[in-house]
């Protein structure tokens, strides 16, 4: 079993509700976003394009954070969720450097890393992750990746699901447990990625 996310990039309107719902549910300080909504922009006036990608920890099948953490703070549960134990964390930030998806984040107030747990507590209580239940357009789904039929209910043919997007690192690195429903723009050359107030040129 491997739990993971299905992100419908074609549906997402970039509203950031998932991001704020995660912060609120998990009591995160301003600036720590376990889930982030990044906006990819490209094209030129009068034909620009933009699409948003909502991503958190990918609960990888081969999680590098688990391997690099010198304190043994990371663990992989039987259901595939990768969880971080702050009581063991020494705040060395190795995991942040190793993770290709910038999932682990440094919480300055605590002096420790923190990361999306897949809402493990909620999942154990039979609930959906908060972000999934918050999305106003139902662009997020969560479940066992081997059962993608359910996850991809909004995807007319399974073939439009991909494991990765052009701007993401190769899925071979950590085998992320995430699937995307894409839109045509993802094949176009992007110019920049917006991440909150930050702009990363490509």
């Amino acid at each position: 079993m491997q739990l993971g996310f299905h992100v419908n990039v074609a549906r997402c309107i970039g509203c950031h509700t998932c991001e704020v719902a995660c912060q609120e549910t998990n009591g995160l300080p301003v600036g720590v976003c376990w889930r982030r909504v990044r906006v990819v922009e490209g094209g030129a006036y009068p034909r620009p394009f933009a699409y948003a990608v909502s991503m958190a920890c990918n609960h990888c099948a081969d999680p590098i954070c688990v391997k690099v953490c010198p304190a043994g703070a990371y663990g992989k549960r039987a259901d595939g969720l990768v969880v971080h134990d702050p009581s063991r964390c020494i705040g060395c930030q190795y995991c942040a450097m190793a993770c290709p998806y910038s999932a682990p984040q440094y919480d300055e107030a605590q002096g420790k890393m923190s990361k999306c747990s897949g809402c493990a507590g909620r999942v154990d209580a039979g609930l959906q992750p908060a972000c999934v239940g918050a999305c106003p357009v139902r662009a997020l789904a969560f479940g066992d990746l081997s059962d993608l039929g359910d996850l991809a209910a909004t995807c007319p043919s399974g073939s439009c699901l991909t494991e990765t997007l052009p701007l993401l690192p190769s899925p071979r690195q950590t085998r992320p447990s995430i699937r995307f429903k894409v839109r045509p723009e993802v094949t176009l050359q992007a110019a920049r990625v917006l991440d909150g107030h930050r702009v990363r040129k490509i």
């Binding site: 509203c15 509700t17 704020v20 719902a21 999305c135 139902r138």
Partner: peptide, 25 residues
Amino acid sequence: RMGTDDAAPDDPTSPQLRSCLRGWS
């Protein structure tokens, strides 16, 4: 803590009335 509508299943013919990021804040 805040949450949003989870009082009924999210049925497409009667969708939950989910709040936006402002509601979560």
